[in-house]
Design a binder for these strands. Structure first.
Length: 125
DNA sequence: CTTCTGACGAAAT
DNA sequence: CATTTCGCCAGAA
C-alpha cells in the first residue's frame, strides 16, 4: 500500500462523517487542496482499525461500493447503520448523503482557497 | 527522465 | 443500464 502525506488529513475529514450517512471519494477530495479522489481511495485502502476511520461510509460517485476483495463487508456495515441499497446495489444520495463538515471543522482548517457552498453544489445527487 | 499504478470521476459510446 | 477512454497526481521502480 502506498502512503501519501495527505492521509492524516483525509482520515481526520472522514472521521467527521456521522453514522448512517455516506460521502463519495470525490466529495472528500474536493475539501482538501491537492488531494484527488484516487488518493482518497488509497487512503481508505490503507486504514487500520487503530486509525479509527469509518472508511465504509465512503463510496464512489455512482453511489455504489467499489469492487474489490471483501466489498460485501462494506455493504453489511452500512446496512447495520440503516443505509439502504437498491436492487442494483446503489444507495440514494438524496437520502443518505453527508452534507459536509460542520462550521467548526471549516474554521479550524482555514479553507480560504475554496468556496464551500459552491463545492456542495457539485456533489452527487 | 520515463513508465506504471491505483477502494476515482465524468463524458462518450 | 454497462463499458471504454481519458484526465487525474503522488510515489515507486
Amino acid at each position: 500500500m502506498r502512503y501519501y502525506s495527505c492521509f492524516p488529513q483525509v482520515y481526520e475529514l472522514v472521521r467527521q462523517i456521522p453514522e448512517g450517512q455516506v460521502a463519495s471519494y470525490g466529495m472528500v477530495a474536493s475539501l482538501l487542496k491537492g488531494v484527488t479522489s484516487r488518493m482518497v481511495g488509497s487512503a481508505m485502502a490503507a486504514t487500520e482499525p487503530k486509525d479509527n476511520v469509518p472508511w465504509w461510509r465512503v463510496l464512489n460517485s455512482a453511489g455504489k461500493i467499489s469492487l474489490r476483495e471483501g466489498s460485501e463487508r462494506q455493504q453489511l456495515a452500512l446496512e447495520e447503520e440503516g443505509v439502504g441499497f437498491s436492487a442494483s446495489g446503489k444507495i440514494s444520495w438524496k437520502e443518505v448523503r453527508w452534507q459536509g463538515p460542520a462550521d467548526a471543522w471549516l474554521e479550524e482548517n482555514a479553507i480560504e482557497f475554496i468556496d464551500f457552498l459552491d463545492i456542495q453544489t457539485r456533489w452527487p445527487d
